[in-house]
């Protein structure tokens, strides 16, 4: 799946090409899909935690970081560096600008660190500021994530906090370095529904204030709708549809996106009176033996009804993303 990570940037901070995704500065970009679709792996590749077997991840660092990378002999192309080619030493510098918020606030925080220490940690690692400055910065961040009054939270340990409070600490830690990109991997899926919106609001307000770009990874299209500017739907390792969030949700074109939307239950009591129509067959197959053509074909109801000419394409060639409207791309032979 990493092959899709071919980034070709123009005026973007960062992009996946091979017509996949192009990250725009300051946006919230969602990777949505079911387990095993590759959304988390994609996020981990952006963080340098898995090395892609092919393709490039081009990133345009800040001027300051670019200078420091230059001193280490990193080669630039149009102001961009290929993250895939970087070694550990270089990544240590890059990590200042690319941070992460994980799904599970119970395991992502060191249980032996106080809140203050957890949030301060990135500053210490990167040798930023003296103790007094760091202390002030930590307080600022806790205020920003509304752990108030701050003095009451500084010396607490994770086990003394609720799930929502822990996730705030994780967000404060991710943003304390003023990163340019934050990968948020299912940041609210382990939280109760009643508090999710509060955490999402926090993320969005922080990124608006700081101009951060966010890659938001989720299995939940409905949640994506509330935070994302654009959505990329993934299936078995590739992006099948990408575009403006509202457009993808209101006018989904790929048969898989349509099925995903049709499957989402809403609290409407009328739903119990009818069987839910699911325009999809079977379950996600193993990613090991993908069909030669479109990997969604075995489950596709559009394929079943398609004319023989289209069918042959589905069977023999992998569809690439094709532009169907402004800001809307779909990888499907029957659509394009």
């Amino acid at each position: 799946m990493i092959e899709v990570l071919r980034f070709r940037p123009r005026r973007y901070v960062y992009a996946v090409n091979n017509v996949s995704f192009a990250l725009r500065e300051g946006e919230v970009f969602c990777l949505v899909g079911e387990s095993g679709c590759g959304k988390t792996t994609t996020g981990r590749a952006l963080l340098g935690l898995v090395k892609p077997t092919g393709g490039r991840i081009l990133y345009r660092p800040s001027r300051e970081l670019a200078e420091r990378l230059g001193e280490l002999g990193v080669v630039f192309e149009d102001g961009f560096v290929d993250l895939v080619s970087l070694g550990r030493r270089e990544w240590r510098l890059v990590r200042r600008e690319i941070q992460v918020v994980y799904q599970d606030p119970y395991s992502s925080l060191n249980p032996r660190f106080t809140v203050k220490r957890s949030v301060e940690e990135p500053l210490i690692i990167h040798g930023i500021g003296d103790e007094e400055w760091r202390d002030r910065r930590v307080r600022e961040m806790l205020e920003a994530v509304r752990l108030l009054p701050v003095s009451e939270y500084l010396e607490r340990y994770p086990h003394e906090l609720s799930g929502g409070q822990r996730q705030r600490v994780a967000i404060a830690r991710a943003f304390i370095l003023n990163p340019r990109l934050v990968v948020a991997d299912e940041p609210v899926s382990m939280l109760d529904v009643s508090i999710r919106a509060e955490i999402l609001e926090l993320l969005v307000s922080l990124k608006s204030r700081l101009g951060t770009t966010i890659v938001f990874i989720t299995h939940d299209l409905a949640t994506a709708r509330y935070v994302c500017d654009r959505i990329a739907v993934m299936y078995l390792g590739s992006i099948v549809e990408v575009g403006d969030a509202e457009k993808v949700i209101r006018e989904p074109l790929h048969p898989y996106t349509r099925a995903l939307i049709a499957a989402i239950p809403e609290p409407d009591p009328a739903n119990r009176r009818r069987m839910r129509e699911l325009p999809i067959k079977g379950e996600v197959p193993s990613a090991v033996d993908l069909p030669r053509g479109c990997s969604f074909m075995p489950r596709c109801v559009v394929y079943d009804r398609a004319d023989p000419r289209i069918k042959r394409l589905c069977e023999e060639r992998r569809p690439g993303l094709a532009r169907v409207a402004r800001d809307h791309w779909v990888a499907c032979w029957a659509v394009s």
Partner: peptide, 24 residues
């Protein structure tokens, strides 16, 4: 009521997602 308002919707207008302050 508030739990229903906190529920993200895939259909209809997007509206504002509400939350319940505090914790149980």
């Amino acid at each position: 009521y508030m739990l229903l308002r906190a529920f993200p919707r895939i259909h209809g207008p997007r509206g504002r997602l509400e939350y319940i302050p505090g914790a149980p």
